[in-house]
Design a protein around this nucleic acid. Structure first.
Lengths: 294, 294
DNA sequence: TCCATTACCTGACTTTAGTCAGATAATAGG
DNA sequence: CCTATTATCTGACTAAAGTCAGGTAATGGA
């Protein structure tokens, strides 16, 4: 990246944090500590939430968050109750009063947005809005992390379920996990395999796995990106990470299989240097097979 | 403006303040309280400053700021000394150590920018940087204010000087104020005239005047936009404001003259509904004349 | 010269934000 | 059933941020 790009990003960061940042805090705090305001905002926009998820999203210490919750409870903005199905975990919901409060935030935030648009002419508005959308997408992309995780933990399992659900939707005639690939998380566990999860703000938005076929050959499995995070290079980064793991594991060849209906996936594999080979397994759902030498 | 535009702006504001805002604070605080960091940053970028001005810029309580200053003095980052000419007021300057410290902030801010670019591919980087530039320009545009001011105060005079300087640069054979239009600020004073200044963050970036030709006819004069603020609709907003004043003053017709070398100006006038007419004065620098019925 | 004003400083305070070390209760896995 | 783990809470702390009521010294105008 060149120095002008860095300079532009710095100017942008300065402008935006100074100006919009200060303004939004003003608009949104409504005489309430910012921590509480952020919490109530986050809860509303999801319409109730597990504490754990909330903590991850806001990046708060569990003790601190607990105190924020007690304070909002005392103000009757929220209710915290046991979560059905797991008595340890709890979840927050807004009371009626909390919903009213949120409505107030909401209207102030809309007002701030309008105050930015209204001095502009229609053409400028359109350009601003579309440039903002572009910046938003790309900044989200730049905040995606890809890290090795256990395929057995909740988020890993969730990702694979999403993956299977997508296959069912897209394959002609649906998809049945047991038929397609009876093996599962065991193959993706170290030391013989690995599993990575892509996250954005703590939320899983993609995954991918690597398993051993033989001492020199690894196989890429379960590469998936959530609909909300497509088109921003997540799958490419998952693949890069898996290839790195494969090199570290001493594989010299990577293989993968896929279905004709997953056209974007095939395009990605080709772009990354995979070339099509003949069938190497008896997966009934697979009809395209790829290989890459590392 | 439509609801989708407002929604996009809100999403953008949220994203950018939460994410970039929090990150920049992190990057820039360098183990020092944010207040001190902001203070040192502000002092450096202006290269020394009066306390009063600084207080205004940072929006701090005088007691709080005083303590920040003492702390930075103890760390030998700054020196605070009596201001020459007024023994009550004082001014801050950076020590050598303070300048080094600033250099460190500077490099961290560049690092933050790089950390946003580096996860992206080159094509994405280019798109991000150009979208950021667009957002920056248009947000700046949306923060421009246009208000009536006295043409005789320092900023108003400065704007008109800039305007004349530009005419000298652009007209073939230069420009001499006395020849071009001997009348000046008197014509632009209420009640027979008016004068508006466009500002961005308090700095003047444009101006425009309205004078009386006869009871029914006003004349637009001295419409200028600073080079730093072109292409973001400042002149259009100045014109809109002057036309509003003209209506309030009871004029039914507006006239203006201009020179063939000011092509953007002519394009703007046409766009705003002015049509070209014959010469109505003997300004030797003018060769195009326009009129609009209000 | 006197007095109100201005510019800043000090001390005493409060609130917000955040950390850390246990405590408690439910659950999952063997 | 036992044990380790997980999810949350509580108490005891600290640092930063901000407020407020005086206090001092210089200034400017009557």
């Amino acid at each position: 990246m060149d120095a002008n790009q860095v300079e532009q990003v710095r100017r942008f960061n300065r402008l935006v944090t100074r100006r919009i940042g200060a303004l939004s805090d003003d608009y949104l705090s409504r005489g309430r500590p910012l921590g509480e305001a952020r919490l109530i905002f986050e809860v509303t926009s999801a319409g109730g939430m597990d504490l754990g998820r909330l903590r991850g999203k806001l990046g708060l210490d569990s003790g601190y968050m607990s105190r924020l919750l007690r304070s909002l409870e005392k103000q009757e903005m929220i209710e915290v109750r046991r979560k059905a199905g797991d008595g340890r975990a709890r979840e927050v919901i807004l009371t009626d009063k909390g919903r009213q409060e949120f409505a107030a935030y909401d209207s102030r935030s809309a007002k701030l947005a309008r105050s930015m648009l209204s001095p502009l002419e229609e053409g400028q508005r359109e350009r601003l809005v579309s440039a903002m959308a572009e910046v938003e997408r790309l900044i989200r992309a730049s905040f995606v992390t890809v890290a090795e995780e256990s395929p057995r933990q909740a988020d890993g399992r969730w990702c694979r379920e999403q993956y299977f659900a997508e296959l069912s939707r897209r394959f002609d005639g649906g998809f049945d996990v047991a038929t397609g690939d009876p093996s599962d998380s065991a193959d993706l566990l170290p030391p013989s395999g690995s599993f990575v999860v892509a996250r954005l703000d703590g939320e899983p938005v993609g995954c991918g796995g690597l398993k051993t076929l033989d001492a020199a050959t690894g196989e890429i499995k379960r590469v998936w990106t959530s609909a909300s995070a497509r088109g921003i290079g997540v799958a490419g980064r998952i693949m890069a990470r898996l290839e790195q793991s494969a090199r570290e594991a001493g594989f010299s060849v990577l293989r993968l299989d896929t279905n004709r209906s997953l056209v974007e996936a095939q395009a990605l594999y080709r772009k990354l240097g995979y070339r099509e080979i003949g069938r190497y397994n008896d997966n009934p759902y697979a009809d395209h097979f790829f290989e890459k030498r590392l």
